[in-house]
Design a protein around this nucleic acid. Structure first.
Lengths: 275, 275
DNA sequence: TCAAAAGTGTTGCACCTACACCCATGG
DNA sequence: CCATGGGTGTAGGTGCAACACTTTTGA
């Protein structure tokens, strides 16, 4: 495992927790579609895989996810939720690694490669891993996908047009979406997909993208304003030949306060807004 | 770590995945209350802790949870859901272990104890652990709590009268309940808390226990029958001086079929029933 | 005949859907 | 003054909460 592996070489010495990994589903929104940031690996053979990594001994798993996200998104404060553990005994990267090595023999059969270390890294990587799935919600306007030196490319793919990914990564994305749909009414986290301020139509479009379903245009504002967590700001003059829409901002402090005061007992909050 | 530790001695040789544990919240229902099965440890000092354990290299995490559950409940087929990962870097049992050893010096300062192994086990146990939380839903009528040789007692506690447990275990129970409340309408798993057949009043009582909230008596049957997953059986003559209620059975096959056919897209299923 | 609990019907309210209509803006 | 899209109002339907009522059973 030469050159390209250099950046993660001696991975077995890195003071990681063994056999535990973190996988990140980075979700963004643009042009009425939810999108996932997916890197393509810098090897021959068209391998796509979710951004992932390992957990240092002295690091919260949340912080590990944040570190991995920052490398690809460049931003530090990311909305993050842990949503699932992949814990199957036969869950390992051996099939993928073998396919990958087979199609990149010139890299891996190099007699100059540090044979011992390669073997150790191969064994380390292909053990059974318990993987913790996180999803992140980011404002695509603030993020320029950053290639690491393991990536051939890194791009946003609409959730319904994902490339075939390695291992169980397509399934992981599907699970992340299910969880988002199930919990968005409790967590009110969809706003993280938009800029600081947004119009009513934009947030409605986001909800419609999340649920792949249209909502009534007159009720949506009523329902979402009833939550009492949006501030209405000045109007947004776009230069278009129509009425200027109002801008809104999600007041996270107010939401947290309502939660803390117990006025929002999760079981009977003034939700759902997504029915 | 003598005598009582014998049953888990040489834990470091057991081919477990390192620094990963599983904690189980075993939920039952009786007398209008949700209850949790909580063992009390067989040491001086009143230590309660959730049933937990470790994951073998060749074992699914789900199966590890099942194995741990079977030891305490005696039953093999248990409804199980993974709901959270505790991943804080400072999450370890050192504070608990030190308190426990302090109050049980006669066991741990015994010069006959195998000093080396004790030390190794102490170090193994008190490392930082990433813990996977599962909750189980069981029919209390089918379960007799089984003490393992680590338990002084094992009992059902109402969720609102739990003893103070070690580490973050009280918080884990709270999170399990939040998850149950959030997902019960999608998973329709509350039936696992009752026997095979049950009356309408019983399942309503279960929902009321889960949500700590009353539901309208006339609407509840309508809503839950609308789901089209309950079979109405013969009446149940109890000998009581009142009308005999019908018995119902949850038809899991029908539910699975509806899910598989896509008639129940999770996002807009004919739910919720718990509003 | 009565008490107890199961089960059903009625009324009012809240919210949702569908549709129509008004408003602000720039050309 | 018109086209465009934001924003709001109305009418009909559905479902839920509260309450009252009927039914079934054993004593």
């Amino acid at each position: 495992m030469k050159s390209n592996m250099k950046s993660v070489e001696s991975v077995s010495d890195k003071n990681y927790i063994e056999q535990v990994s973190v996988e990140c589903v980075i979700l963004g929104y643009h042009d009425k579609k939810l999108r996932v940031m997916v890197p393509k690996l810098a090897f021959k053979g068209d391998f796509w895989g979710l951004p992932g990594g390992f957990v240092y001994q002295d690091e919260d798993t949340d912080d590990a996810a944040r570190r991995i996200l920052q490398a690809r998104t460049g931003i530090k404060d990311v909305y993050l939720e842990q949503f699932q553990v992949m814990g199957k005994a036969n869950r390992n990267s051996r099939a993928f690694m073998d396919r990958m090595i087979e199609q990149n023999t010139e890299l891996f059969n190099n007699p100059l490669a540090e044979g011992q270390r390669s073997r150790m890294d191969y064994d380390w990587f292909t053990r059974r891993f318990i993987s913790i799935g996180y999803y992140a919600l980011v404002d695509m306007n603030q993020v320029i996908p950053q290639k690491t030196d393991l990536d051939a490319s890194i791009e946003w793919y609409p959730v319904d047009e994902l490339p075939p990914m390695i291992m169980d990564h397509n399934q992981i994305v599907a699970n992340a979406l299910s969880t988002l749909r199930l919990t968005v009414d409790q967590k009110l986290n969809a706003f993280n997909l938009l800029p600081e301020t947004f119009t009513m139509q934009e947030i409605q479009d986001v909800y419609e993208a999340i649920f792949d379903k249209r909502f009534a245009q007159n009720n949506f504002p009523k329902r979402i304003l009833r939550l009492n967590v949006l501030d209405r700001l000045e109007k947004k003059y776009t230069g278009a030949a129509n009425k200027a829409p109002y801008l809104y901002r999600f007041d996270k402090e107010r939401y947290d306060r309502l939660l803390a005061e117990g006025d929002y007992p999760i079981a009977d909050s003034p939700l759902p807004i997504s029915t």
